[in-house]
Design a binder for these strands. Structure first.
Length: 322
DNA sequence: ATGGTTTTTACTGCGTC
DNA sequence: GACGCGGTAAAAACCAT
């Protein structure tokens, strides 16, 4: 009896978050109005183009439900719609095994029939050039995102950006790969998990010049209004790669904050600032790193670190007086 | 295309281990 | 002598116009 009670208790107390967190929101980036684009199933900022909130892709039950009993029954069925497949994962897939749904072998006639179905299904699935284009681009986005360790929601954002570029006819004259790379670069920055151009050069087949050129182009044409990357966003990855103690990481972030308040960070390469902050923080913590070490993992020259970290320390000295 | 800003490259001298 | 560091000038890259 006791056992039964506790069991049911835990079961009923799960999943009671029906907060409607949307429609009249402010964009976290630029403060613009956010509206819901139902055709895509995502929140879009009217100011800066788009805001993907991954909690919003598949938020809950499909229909209105009255009471919690009904709510349980009418939950959504099937995989969530995703932008990462060129048909958003909604198409039919025919298995490759020559078995029916019960696992029995198919007869010779049925097998041929299914084979024909597979063929036609594949033809329809990638019917026109747009679909083939998307298919290839999304494959590239996925590949690069994996290589750079970018999470799912960044890939989703990149997919959306790419679709928009495609819809607005920005592709002609540009390579699919280039636009795919630029889309992912933009998406990574938008979602506050930026990667440097250098890192993209490592994993993309596109050379640096074209990545930046294409990024500028689609960013302008789509009105993405992406803010400059915050140097702090690079620090954790660098410090873990350098195996520095956590105090250094924290101190480095504070150095960035202080510098940002003084306004000496604008126009400067964020990776350079991050590297300098780490170097300076390590110095202050008596946990020395060489400029070359930090420069290597951040992809920044020693000269830049020198210039930046002295500026950072100047701010600190001035701050102590105040 | 142009000019202003920032970063990189390459080289230097200095002190330390 | 090798290494880490600081400084510098010129080249290269970047960015807005």
């Amino acid at each position: 009896m006791r056992q039964i009670n506790t069991h049911t208790d835990t079961e009923e107390s799960t999943e009671e978050e029906d907060e409607q967190t949307n429609t009249r929101n402010r964009c976290s980036e630029c403060g613009g109005d956010v509206y819901r684009d139902d055709s895509q199933g995502e929140l879009v900022c009217s100011e800066c183009g788009l805001v993907i909130d991954d909690t919003n892709i598949d938020p809950g039950p499909d229909w209105r439900a009255f009471g919690s009993e009904e709510k349980k029954e009418k939950s959504r069925v099937g995989a969530p719609v995703t932008n990462m497949m060129h048909d958003k994962g909604l198409s039919t897939n025919i298995g490759w095994k020559d078995q029916d749904a019960y696992g029995n072998q198919l007869s010779e006639r049925k097998r041929k029939k299914v084979q024909r179905l597979r063929t036609w299904n594949e033809r329809f699935r990638t019917k026109d050039s747009t679909d083939r284009n998307l298919k290839q681009a999304l494959g590239e986005i996925d590949r690069m995102a994996s290589a750079l360790g970018l999470p799912e929601n960044v890939r989703e954002t990149a997919s959306v950006i790419y679709r928009r570029a495609l819809n607005e006819n920005l592709l002609p004259g540009r390579s699919i790969e280039g636009v795919a790379t630029a889309s992912l670069y933009a998406a990574a920055r938008r979602n506050r998990t930026p990667r440097s151009i250098d890192e993209f050069v490592q994993v993309s087949r596109i050379e640096r010049k074209e990545i930046t050129r294409t990024y500028r182009y689609i960013s302008r044409e789509l009105g993405l209004k992406i803010k400059h990357a915050n140097p702090k966003q690079f620090i954790p990855r660098y410090t873990t790669e350098l195996n520095t103690p956590q105090e250094v990481e924290i101190a480095a972030k504070e150095l960035i904050d202080d510098a940002a308040e003084e306004g000496i960070t604008s126009g400067k390469d964020p990776t350079g600032l991050a590297a300098a902050a780490i170097y300076a923080a390590a110095l202050l913590a008596n946990k020395k790193l060489t400029q070359a070490e930090v420069g290597n993992v951040a992809g920044v020259s020693e000269v830049t670190i020198r210039n930046r970290y002295q500026e950072l320390l100047e701010v600190q000295d001035a701050g102590l007086v105040n």
